[in-house]
Amino acid sequence: MAKGALLVESHPSSPDRADEFVTWYREVHMPEVLALDGFVSARQLTPIDGTGPYVSIYEIDCDDIGGAAKALFAAARNGTFTMSDSMQMDPPPAMRFLEVTAGR
């Protein structure tokens, strides 16, 4: 079982760019995040009514969840990630790193 997770809520920059956003996120962004140490799986969930954020869940399997968070932020700052203007950045995506404390 993974030791932590990253929960991300994001939006396309406009409704007419939703398909472009989903394609970029799944084919470019998720693989780039999964290339970082500790990130072992990713899922994107799409709102069934077409409103609200897209939610991504990345599982993290390492002993230092805080270190994985620092590595992700460093990759974002240093240009490791290929960003797309199809993702809304104002406001930016909401991100939460979480530690697994119970599971079945």
Rank of each mutant, 00 (worst) to 15 (best):
P91S: 04
F97D: 08
D49T: 06
D16T: 07
Y58R: 07
H11Q: 04
A71R: 12
D63V: 04
S10K: 06
T23S: 10
G50M: 02
R104W: 15
D63A: 15
A18R: 09
D64L: 15
A102H: 05
G50I: 08
M87E: 01
A94H: 15
R96G: 03
P15F: 01
K3E: 04
A35M: 12
I57C: 10
L6F: 00
R43H: 15
T80K: 08
D61E: 15
D90W: 05
G50Y: 00
G4H: 00
R43V: 15
T101N: 03
R43E: 15
T23L: 15
E27V: 06
A69Q: 13
D64S: 12
V28L: 07
Y25C: 06
A69Y: 00
R43D: 14
T51N: 14
L6S: 04
L7K: 05
R26I: 13
E32L: 02
G38M: 06
R17W: 15
T80C: 08
D37L: 09
R17S: 04
P47I: 01
E20R: 14
P31N: 07
G79E: 04
P47S: 13
L7R: 07
D37V: 10
I60S: 09
A2S: 15
D19L: 12
Q88P: 00
F97C: 01
V100I: 13
S10D: 11
R43G: 14
G50H: 02
S41I: 05
V28Q: 02
L98C: 15
A35G: 03
V100F: 10
A75R: 01
F39H: 03
D37E: 12
D37Y: 07
G50N: 02
G79Q: 11
T101Y: 08
A42L: 10
E9N: 09
D61P: 06
Y58T: 03
R77M: 09
A74C: 05
P53K: 02
F39K: 09
P53L: 01
E20H: 06
V55L: 14
Y58N: 00
D90N: 11
D16N: 08
S86M: 13
E9K: 14
D61A: 14
P91Y: 07
T23H: 13
A69E: 11
P93I: 00
G4T: 02
S13H: 06
Y54V: 05
V33M: 05
G4A: 03
S10M: 03
W24G: 11
Q88S: 06
P92F: 02
L45P: 02
A75K: 06
Y25R: 03
E27G: 07
G67R: 11
V100N: 02
F39W: 10
L6M: 13
E20K: 08
W24S: 14
V22T: 15
L72Y: 12
H11W: 09
S84G: 03
D49A: 03
S86R: 06
G52Y: 01
V28T: 12
